[in-house]
């Protein structure tokens, strides 16, 4: 199986405080696979996705991260994004005065330009935009506001998933996208992910609870505790965690 992401013995810390978060993490994600990472708070789940996306408030101390066999660690955040890494944020920023449309158009343009693809006309873009808004069930009025300003927690998450649909990433990182979602929103996020799953695209889903995973049914489940993956398995691992909690893994 072709590998999309290969992480070897990754050690990472908070840049400012030098607090060590990831302590020798190994993870290998193949094309078309959906992986879930579960674990207690403070175990390093969010740190892991942020490090993959390249956030500089975290520092990689040692180890390797390869994306399609290319070293990621020295790569700029925007280049990683343009090469196909997408992160759905747990707390997306508010950008005053910038409309969601303008924002996602700039993102799509920038990615297409990088990949040497033709820029979409406003008409072509609008068509895809409208379709995807419907699929995600976004409130149209919301999209006339500034990006994420005055959005509820759930609306922000839906908007993240909408952007994921628009950008069609190779590897999608979902950082606790299920937190703060009601049942309907949870289902529509699950539906979008399932809809986007194919032989080429991979997902890394970070979550605290099993409820999103019930919709998505990941191929692989990993338990991340104290910066290390302590157990990996299939979907059945979700049930085990549900029944016994994380304590049985420590």
């Amino acid at each position: 199986m072709d590998k999309i992401l290969e992480i070897k013995n990754l050690k990472a810390s908070v840049t400012e405080t030098e607090e060590k978060i990831l302590n020798g993490l190994n993870l290998s994600i193949g094309k078309g696979e959906t992986h879930a990472i579960m674990g207690p708070n403070g175990g390093g789940k969010s740190t892991l996705v942020n490090v993959i996306a390249g956030k500089d408030s975290y520092s990689v101390d040692s180890g390797e991260i390869e994306f399609f066999s290319e070293d990621l660690i020295e790569m700029e955040v925007d280049e990683r994004a343009k090469k196909g890494i997408f992160m759905a944020f747990q707390y997306p920023s508010e950008i005053p005065g910038v409309r969601p449309w303008q924002f996602i158009k700039a993102s799509v343009d920038s990615k297409r330009k990088f990949l040497g693809e033709k820029e979409l006309s406003v008409r072509e873009f609008s068509k895809i935009y409208d379709e995807n808004i419907k699929i995600v069930g976004m409130n149209q009025d919301l999209m006339k506001r500034s990006l994420n300003e005055g959005f509820s927690g759930g609306e922000k998450k839906r908007n993240e998933v909408f952007q994921m649909l628009m950008l069609e990433p190779q590897l999608a990182l979902l950082d606790e996208t299920d937190s703060g979602l009601d049942v309907d929103a949870l289902k529509s996020v699950g539906d979008v992910v399932n809809r986007m799953r194919n032989n080429e695209r991979s997902f890394l889903i970070v979550t605290h609870y099993q409820r999103l995973l019930d919709h998505i049914k990941p191929d692989f489940v990993h338990v991340l505790i104290k910066g290390k993956i302590v157990e990996s398995g299939g979907y059945e691992l979700v049930k085990k965690i549900e029944e016994n909690g994380y304590e049985s893994f420590v």
Partner: peptide
């Protein structure tokens, strides 16, 4: 930094990201 990271994670380079934040702010 959070705003910049968000925009750059969507494929805008650092300058483009600043520009978008600033023009939005000036709107």
């Amino acid at each position: 930094d959070e705003q910049l990271f968000y925009l750059m994670q969507r494929g805008l380079d650092e300058e483009e990201a600043h520009h978008m934040i600033i023009t939005g702010w000036s709107k």
